[in-house]
């Protein structure tokens, strides 16, 4: 392309053409950022490696979480482990954006994408795509293992696309990108990894157990509308309709994401960097 012999005196103007900011370019950039920092791709792969490891052990051993309440008969029972992977993906989501703030590279990113919205959207898109694809592959892999192991009677010979299997696996798998996006929104909101992770564990992970003690009796059921409660409903895929059905759970989850993501976006647009 360009002559490399002519150094600082002859910048390569021709090969830049009509270059401009584009959605595809922003996505490529985020893809590069994700895989070029070791801590980021390690936290990502760790989430899946750990989940696969624990699920495989469970499947081979034939033990199902919560088998005392009949969990052992649930065909997709192994997805009960997925929330552990989700936890790591929350942290990964937090890190993808807070690491930009802590290193100052956010300024480089926003000078390249000064409208800012594109940065948040492309980060969210890449995270969603990567965690959804890896989650789907993981679920297919574990389903195959389950069929080979044959340790769960109710799942024996059941197609992955059998409604009794499919919706549970889908619900469990979607927990993974949800966690990553939730972490991204929290990280963008607080711009500090420690604060965002503390908020997640303090409010969203432990909150449902702590808050009812402080709320008046009439309001205690509000914790049912926190994300983890809705996630449990979604993962159950209709087997449990307490305290509400899957449809409501999906709406609750999306509402949380829109609310937190919207606040993050609004602040990103307005705040100085």
């Amino acid at each position: 392309m360009t002559s490399h012999t002519a150094l600082a005196s002859a910048p390569a103007g021709a090969d830049l053409g009509a270059a401009r900011i584009s959605a595809v370019g922003m996505l490529k950039s985020e893809w590069t950022k994700l895989w070029s920092v070791r801590s980021l791709w390690i936290s990502l792969t760790a989430a899946f490696a750990l989940t696969i490891g624990l699920c495989s052990y469970m499947i081979i051993d034939g033990q199902m979480l919560g088998s005392d309440d009949g969990g052992g008969s649930i065909p997709f029972g192994w997805t009960a482990i997925y929330p552990i992977g989700m936890l790591i993906l929350v942290i990964h989501g937090v890190l993808t954006i807070t690491s930009e703030y802590s290193t100052g590279s956010i300024r480089t990113s926003l000078v390249a994408a000064p409208r800012r919205t594109g940065l948040l959207l492309s980060k969210a898109a890449v995270l969603t795509a990567v965690t959804t694809v890896l989650g789907a592959l993981m679920s297919v892999l574990l389903y195959t293992l389950l069929q080979f192991a044959g340790t769960v009677p109710s799942a024996r010979g059941m197609s992955l696309f059998d409604p009794d299997m499919f919706w549970g696996v889908l619900g469990g798998t979607l927990v993974l990108p949800y966690g990553a996006l939730f972490g991204l929104a929290l990280g963008g909101l607080l711009r500090n990894a420690a604060a965002a992770i503390a908020l997640y564990f303090g409010v969203f992970q432990l909150g449902p157990q702590i808050f009812p003690a402080f709320l008046p009796d009439g309001l205690a059921h509000l914790v049912d509308y926190m994300p983890l409660a809705a996630i449990d409903v979604m993962r159950a895929a209709g087997l449990s309709t307490e305290p509400y059905g899957v449809g409501v759970a999906v709406v609750v989850l999306l509402a949380w994401l829109v609310m937190l993501g919207g606040a993050t976006w609004w602040l990103l647009k307005r705040r100085d960097v």
């Binding site: 392309m1 360009t2 490399h4 390569a12 090969d15 830049l16 270059a19 401009r20 900011i21 584009s22 595809v24 370019g25 922003m26 490529k28 950039s29 985020e30 590069t32 950022k33 070029s36 920092v37 070791r38 801590s39 690491s99 930009e100 290193t103 100052g104 590279s105 956010i106 300024r107 480089t108 390249a112 994408a113």
Partner: peptide, 28 residues
């Protein structure tokens, strides 16, 4: 204002990609 764990090449590449500059420009 660079992520210390990222290489110079990938740092520049991630900037170049946002505007659709070719990889050769990074090397240049």
């Amino acid at each position: 204002a660079v992520h210390p764990a990222r290489s110079a090449y990938h740092h520049l590449l991630s900037i170049a990609q946002t505007q659709g500059f070719p990889k050769q420009r990074v090397n240049h």
